[in-house]
Computed example of a mutant assay.
Amino acid sequence: MTGEFECLVGSGRLPERLRGGVVAIGNFDGVHRGHQAVLERALEEARARNVPALVLTFEPHPRTVFRPDIPLPRITPAPVKARLIRLLGFDAVVEQEFSREFAQKSADEFIDEVLMRQLGVGHVVTGFDFHFGKNRQGDPAFLVAAAKSRGFGVTQVEAFSDEGGEIVSSSRIRTLLEAGDVTQAAGLLGYRFTVESEIVHGKKLGRTLGFPTANMVLPNDAVLHHGIYAVRLRRANGDLHDGVASFGRRPTVESEGEPLLETYVFDFNGDLYGEVCDVSFFGFLRGEEKFDGLDALLEQMKHDKEEARALLAGVRPLSELDVRLAFERRS
């Protein structure tokens, strides 16, 4: 790496030290194992050339611009995606604003304005199916020909398949998370699905029941099935705590409510209000239920706590990225 990691909004203000590098291009929602195959190849190319390694991604996701009527759940909002990219070893991520105006750029304009003038690329790494420019006119062959005439290199990485021979994709992972299957999703991500948010005040009912919770409001486009999960909460200082979390609308105590992630942190009595914390998901315990009164709810919560403790006692890291994410200090 060339220095401190940078997250840049827009490609027009790239520091001189980052120009001439290897740039991986893609949406990379989830930064899953298929994306990591592309990203690791970019890192290899950058090391071989002794130049900076960058990622060019697009915000918001292009699908939300072209089809705003169809919600697209996000696996990794931009801040989480940038963190994962940094933990992989990149020098910078450039978040190119994607709009209908930007989508009207021709393939040649994208190459000349963004890649050449703004980023000064020395080499580009993409997935095998990367298309760009107005009406997706720029295909892999177009990129290779354009690069040859402009003097930069191109590497295209084939699709990555899991151990069962299926291609790893963001859509597969979204489907798993929407069903609550965080275990299979982690196998495709290569790390535990993680959300990041500020701890906010709730109604403090859990405190009166002996189960005080750290509450988070997740983004509207968050993808996760309502239910109870075995989790680990990570503070910005790196402290890691096992816990059990409920994500949903609390049907036993509210007739209607906004979805809330409520994490009961084991063996912790401190104050987390106002802190930005992570919650990583290790296992789905059960779906959200409406109980016949608080006594029945409390009894189930005790059972959930013990089940989560047992599950978390046996977990092992999935990858080096999983380890880095688990022990990261952000303050």
Rank of each mutant, 00 (worst) to 15 (best):
E163L: 12
V157Q: 09
F130P: 01
G164K: 11
R207M: 10
S169P: 01
L209R: 06
L189E: 02
P77M: 10
A92T: 08
R117F: 11
E178D: 07
V154L: 14
Q184G: 07
V168T: 14
D162A: 07
Q118C: 01
G133M: 09
G206E: 11
F193G: 04
D91K: 02
E109M: 00
R192C: 03
P212V: 05
H131C: 05
D108Y: 05
G202V: 07
R100I: 08
L143K: 00
P77K: 06
A179R: 07
I85P: 02
V200I: 13
V144G: 00
F193Y: 14
G202N: 12
F98G: 04
F98V: 03
P140E: 05
A159S: 06
G210C: 12
Q137F: 03
F211Y: 12
I111G: 04
L115Q: 05
E101P: 06
A145K: 14
K81E: 06
L88F: 00
L177C: 03
V182T: 05
L84I: 01
R100K: 15
P79C: 00
T76E: 10
F193R: 04
R100D: 14
V157A: 09
G138I: 09
A82L: 06
L205N: 06
A145V: 11
Q137K: 13
S161C: 15
D181H: 09
L119F: 04
D181E: 14
Q96P: 04
I75N: 08
P77H: 07
V195A: 04
R74S: 13
G164P: 03
I167C: 03
F211N: 11
R74Q: 15
V124D: 06
G153H: 11
S149I: 14
Q96A: 08
V114K: 09
G164D: 15
L205S: 02
G122M: 13
R74I: 11
K81Y: 08
G190R: 00
A145S: 15
I199K: 06
F142E: 11
E95N: 07
G89A: 08
S171A: 12
E198I: 12
T175Y: 10
A92K: 10
S106I: 06
E109R: 02
A146L: 06
L176P: 02
P140H: 07
T213G: 12
L115I: 04
R192G: 01
A186G: 10
S99G: 00
R192P: 01
V121K: 02
P77D: 08
Q118D: 14
R117L: 13
D129T: 13
E95T: 02
E97D: 13
V94A: 03
A146G: 12
F128C: 04
D112T: 05
D91W: 02
E166N: 09
L87G: 00
A185F: 00
V182D: 05
G153T: 12
K204I: 05
E196G: 03
S171M: 10
F152K: 14
F211A: 11
L188E: 13
G190Q: 00
L88H: 02
G202A: 10
L88D: 01
G190P: 00
D91S: 08
L188V: 11
Q118V: 00
R136L: 04
A159N: 00
R172T: 07
A107N: 15
R86H: 14
E101H: 12
R174T: 11
L115N: 04
Q104H: 02
S161R: 15
V124Q: 05
A185K: 01
R117G: 10
F160L: 00
S169C: 03
F211C: 09
S197D: 15
G127Y: 04
